[in-house]
Simulated scan of single mutants.
Amino acid sequence: MSKPDPDVLVESRLTDGVAVLTLADPDHRNALSRQLSDDLAHAVGAALDDGARALVLGAAPPVFCAGGSLDALLARTDPLPEMFAGLTALAGAPVPTVAAVAGPAIGAGVNLPLACDLVIATPRARFDPRFLDVGIHPGGGHLFRLASRVGAQGAAAMVLCGDVLTGQEAVERGLAWRCVDESDLDRTAMALARRAAARPARLVRRTKETLHRSLTLNDPDAAFALELDAQEWSMDQPEFTEALARVRARITEARR
C-alpha cells in the first residue's frame, strides 16, 4: 500500500463500497483552508467516481475542525464561494453520508457534520458555531442547516447566544443521531454506512433525492405525488423483482 501524500489534507480509502474521508491537517486543527476545502471536494468526487456507495467523514484528532482558516479569512485572497468547495461537494453527494465526530467542531467546522445525512458523535465532541465571537456572519448555509436540525430556538441559542452542545446534548437536540464511546465511533459509523452501501445503489440514491426534495415541500399532496412517482419507478427495477423473490423464498422455507 502506498503511503498517504503528505501534501494532501484529506485522506481517503475505499472499503466495502464505503469511502472513508479523513481531514488530515491536525497541526492546524483541520481548519478549513482553501487547500483542505479543495482536497475535500476532490476526495468526494474521486470517491464517487470510484463507485463509493456511501461516505464516512472523520478527522485526525484531537480537533474535528477548527472552522475557517484565520490566515485565509484575514488575507481574503480567495472568494468565499470557492472556500466552500468541500462543503458543497459533501452536501451534494448523492449517496448516504455519515460524519464521525470525536472532537470539537468550531465555527464553519460545524458545517461539515451538518452537511452529512447522519452525525455520530462521542462524549468529547463539541458543536460550537462561534461565528459571532470572531465578528463574522455565519455562512455556507449554516443557519438553514442548523435550524433544520435543532429548530429556530436552538439555532438562536447556539449562534446568537454562544451555547455549545456536547456529543450527548447534540443527540438530545437532534443535531446528531447517536453518541457512542470513542472506541466505538468508527465501528458505528462504518456499520451504518455499510448497510446503506449494501442496498441497491440506484434505489438508495433515488430515496435520498426524494428525502431532500420532501424537505422543501409543505403540501402533503405534493409529498404523496413525489413518493408515488419514485415508488412506481422502484417497482419497475429488476432489484425489486429479485428482492421480492428472496422474501418469498424465505417465507416458503420458514413454513416447511
Rank of each mutant, 00 (worst) to 15 (best):
T97H: 05
A157F: 05
V110D: 00
V171I: 09
L114P: 00
V101A: 09
G154K: 10
G139A: 13
A196R: 01
P96A: 08
A170R: 01
V119L: 15
L132P: 01
G151F: 12
L112P: 01
Q153G: 08
G162P: 05
A197D: 04
P123C: 10
L192K: 01
F131H: 09
D186C: 08
A196G: 12
A196D: 07
A108P: 01
G167V: 06
A156H: 15
A170L: 08
D184V: 04
N111S: 11
P94T: 12
A155V: 10
A191V: 08
G174I: 09
V95E: 01
I136W: 06
D133C: 09
V101Q: 05
A125I: 01
I106D: 00
R130E: 12
R149H: 12
R194K: 15
E172S: 13
A176E: 04
G139I: 10
V150R: 03
P113M: 06
V171L: 13
A156Y: 12
L112V: 03
V150P: 03
T188L: 08
H142W: 07
A197M: 07
R145S: 11
F127R: 00
A189G: 08
A193H: 05
V150C: 09
R173F: 09
M190I: 13
R145C: 06
R126F: 04
L192A: 11
A100N: 04
P104V: 02
A89M: 08
V110P: 02
R145D: 14
C116A: 13
E182I: 05
A115C: 09
L90C: 06
A189C: 10
L185T: 06
A102M: 05
L112T: 01
S183F: 05
A156E: 11
A147T: 14
H142L: 15
A176H: 03
L160Y: 10
I106L: 14
G162R: 09
M158C: 11
E169I: 06
R195L: 14
F127Y: 15
A189W: 02
L192E: 00
T88M: 07
A197K: 00
A155I: 07
L114S: 00
P138D: 12
L118K: 03
V159E: 07
L132C: 06
G103D: 03
N111I: 02
A152F: 13
G135E: 10
Q153K: 14
T88I: 06
A147M: 09
G141I: 13
A105F: 03
L118H: 11
Q153E: 15
V171C: 15
R187P: 00
V171F: 09
L118G: 00
A155Y: 02
E169W: 04
